Simulated assay, not measured.
Amino acid sequence: MDVGFWQAFKEDMLAAAGEMGIDKLGVTTADPFLELKQRLVRHRELGFESGFEEPDLDKRTEPGLLLPGARSIISIAVAYPSKLKDAPVSEPGLRRGILSRSAWGEDYHQALRRRMVRLSEWIVARLPDAELLSMVDTGALSDRAVAERAGIGWSGKNCSVITPELGSWVYLGEMITNLPLPPDQSLEDGCGDCTRCIDACPTGALVGPGQLNAQRCISYITQTKGFVEDELMLKIGNRLYGCDTCQIVCPVNRGIDVRLHEELLPDPEVAKPLLRPILTMGNREFKERFGSSSAAWRGRKPIQRNALIGLGNFKDRESVPDVVRALNDDPRPVLRATAAWALGRIGGDEAKLGLEQAKLGEQDPDVLAAIDRALTAQA
């Protein structure tokens, strides 16, 4: 088959993308991502990795290791909303947390996989011998590196792929194939001298243009399951999952709120839930409430810990009995220690009494240390 056939095939695929629920599609070669590999090596040396990534840097940068005979990579982008309509109000006694926009609506992994299946079926129906390997977020390849090289958008200083039409409010996925599809041109950088994302990052996790220290990124921290440093808990605010600050301040994103896909529209009560009820949720209730969101992938422990952090940062006096109950009754030391921190932040006689009484029966050294710090903060 000649070049003309593959160009026509690609144009037909582009024309059909919208019906598959794909908002933007680009193609790049399956050549190794050599520059990316150098950056990843340096990233690891600096200790900036999150630990959620594929550990094998060769697999992350050499598509041919994932699909022998790979010739092309198809990159897709699907837009998601950035505005929460009819958002419930957070008020004393009824304080609310917030999920990042990437966790609104249906879990994007499922939403994109369905689109990848449709695209695969479309290709195989026309080329039965096509070899295809799809991945979304959890695959070995870097979604952003593929999308950048395929012309979906440019890599912003906030480490997001920014599209001219949809901003950075897009989910990304890719498909490695043995088809020799004509590649697209990458876009020129559109950030210019702007550093708003770097300046606005709450923890200074954006250590340079396009360089992220994941260990200090709130989006990463809210997904961990362990103890969080006091300083970082202050920065988390009422975020239950993820952080959108570096995208919210981006000038390209201003005014963009794409609502093309019903399954990605947020339920306000899930996107901005009450904090106190989260503290006593069992696994079944948690799955019923948050199970369809990408925020549920780490289970309820991080969300419950972050709910305690949110109540502490709100200094919500009416929640003290709930937080004291968590300090006394929760079997998980991380949550008890976080509850102690929250009571120290809230302050007042009831919080102090709760801390003093809990100290008498507590045996875990980390929790005891947290109680002591909380009592010192109130002194």
Rank of each mutant, 00 (worst) to 15 (best):
G190D: 06
S75H: 03
G310M: 12
G156I: 01
L57I: 13
L179D: 04
A271W: 05
D244P: 01
T222A: 12
N238T: 13
R113A: 08
R149P: 00
S75L: 06
A200G: 03
A140T: 03
A374E: 02
I176Y: 01
G69D: 07
A140L: 02
L179M: 03
W154H: 10
T28C: 14
R305C: 09
G4I: 12
N313W: 09
L127C: 10
D23K: 05
L360N: 06
Y171L: 12
R196P: 00
L308M: 05
A339M: 07
L65F: 00
I152A: 01
R95T: 13
M233I: 08
G348Y: 04
V89T: 13
P209S: 03
N158W: 06
S186G: 07
D143M: 03
R373M: 12
H261S: 08
F290Q: 08
E269P: 05
E106D: 09
G153Y: 00
S292N: 09
S155D: 04
P277R: 14
A307D: 11
G312N: 09
Y220H: 15
R115Y: 01
R149G: 04
P180H: 05
T163P: 11
S160A: 14
S102K: 13
I22E: 02
V334S: 07
E11P: 06
E131P: 00
K10V: 11
S100P: 11
E350G: 06
G105N: 02
R44F: 07
N313Q: 03
R101Y: 02
E45R: 15
S155I: 08
E263K: 10
L40P: 02
P92L: 14
L127V: 15
A271N: 08
I74Y: 04
A339H: 01
T203E: 08
L212Y: 01
G226L: 05
M281L: 14
R39S: 14
V270C: 08
A150H: 04
D364W: 02
C217D: 02
D12F: 00
P182F: 02
I303W: 12
L212N: 11
T280M: 14
H109R: 12
A79H: 07
P164K: 11
E45S: 13
T61A: 11
F9K: 08
H43C: 10
P266D: 07
Y80M: 05
E54W: 11
A17W: 00
V323E: 09
L172I: 02
D189V: 06
K85H: 14
C250G: 05
R113P: 00
K37R: 15
G18P: 06
Y171T: 11
F290W: 10
L335F: 10
R373S: 09
Y171D: 10
H43D: 13
N306L: 08
K85L: 15
C201P: 01
A340E: 03
C194F: 06
L265V: 03
A340W: 01
N238F: 12
V3A: 15
V117W: 07
A150N: 01
R289P: 06
L84D: 04
F9D: 00
Y220N: 15
